[in-house]
């Protein structure tokens, strides 16, 4: 161990100045996660929320089985279906975000620097806009008297049930997370020397071969980061299924929240949280291993 202060750049603070941030981070990030893991193995009280400090794996069992009248465990796929639906919606969101974001990022990266800055700003503004506002804006578009139905009626195409549907919830997710895909893609494409792509084309490659063999591999770190930044929060989404899906489409995030609210089964809610964290952890681990093997640099910040 060397002296912690030695070799320190002048003007920096001693190492212990980072303690307040670390302590509050540890306390309010690791602390809650530790508590949620602990709660998931505890017993539900006879009534109300909270937990009784008594070890049990009932909460995990609840996610797959229900007790029948005579006390037998019966397989119950209801919660598995919620998980599946969440994974499907998150996957669709990631795929469609990519389809929209890749051309947008490529287009931005090939503008002049000044225009690039403005376009990045244009993508960043929705990112910093209140989530409720962004979701509400789609209610105005999709509602019964909304913009789409007004246009549809004017064209004589009649009225459509758009708001409070599966589709609306899915659309909300895509809209919310699009900037999360564009920004990392742009950041991996912006440093690219596009003369290489031009050279490939000049040497006889088809335009789509250039795209597939030169540009896409360049963008790979951005694709991975962007996909993770869309998939992970989309998997735990909570607002869009309620406001746009009308609460009819239950996703895992809503199920977790409701366990700490109305139905008050904290251990079950905790167990669901642990399961989703484990899924995301596996996801990250897989990507991490893949990144190490292929030498791709993956970053999870915007």
């Amino acid at each position: 161990m060397s002296e912690p202060n030695r070799g320190r750049t002048p003007g920096r603070l001693p190492w212990f100045a980072s303690l307040p941030a670390l302590v509050i981070g540890a306390l309010f990030t690791i602390g809650p996660l530790a508590v949620i893991v602990a709660f998931s193995f505890m017993t539900r009280p006879a009534q109300g929320g909270g937990v009784v400090y008594q070890f049990t794996t009932d909460a995990y069992r609840t996610s797959l089985f229900t007790k029948s009248f005579n006390g037998d465990l019966v397989f119950n796929s209801a919660y598995l279906e919620v998980f599946w639906r969440s994974v499907v919606q998150a996957t669709i969101s990631t795929a469609i975000c990519f389809v929209l974001a890749f051309p947008l990022a490529l287009w931005i990266a090939t503008r002049t620097p000044r225009v690039q800055n403005l376009l990045v700003l244009a993508v960043t503004i929705p990112f910093w806009t209140n989530l409720l506002v962004r979701t509400y804006a789609w209610m105005l578009v999709l509602a019964k008297d909304g913009v789409i139905n007004q246009a549809s009626r004017a064209l004589g195409l009649g009225e459509h049930e758009l708001l409070y549907t599966d589709l609306a919830s899915q659309l909300g997710l895509i809209y919310t997370f699009l900037p999360f895909m564009v920004l990392p893609l742009y950041s991996s494409l912006s440093g690219f020397d596009f003369r290489l792509a031009e050279a490939g084309y000049d040497l006889g490659a088809h335009k789509f071969t250039v795209l597939r063999r030169i540009i896409l591999p360049m963008a790979r770190p951005g694709i991975i980061s962007g996909s993770l930044l869309v998939f992970m929060p989309a998997l735990g989404s909570y607002v869009q299924p309620v406001l746009l899906g009308g609460g009819k489409v239950l996703l895992i995030g809503n199920l977790i929240a409701s366990q700490f609210g109305d139905s008050r089964n904290w251990p079950f809610g905790a167990a669901l949280s642990v399961i989703i964290l484990a899924l995301l952890g596996l996801c990250l681990l897989g990507v991490g291993l893949w990144a190490r093997r292929t030498g791709t640099k993956v970053s999870l910040s915007l």
Partner: peptide, 16 residues
């Protein structure tokens, strides 16, 4: 906090 799903962090913080 950027990676953990917000709902999970929310209920976990409440419990904590």
């Amino acid at each position: 906090p950027l990676i953990i799903p917000e709902v999970v962090l929310a209920v976990a913080t409440l419990a904590f």
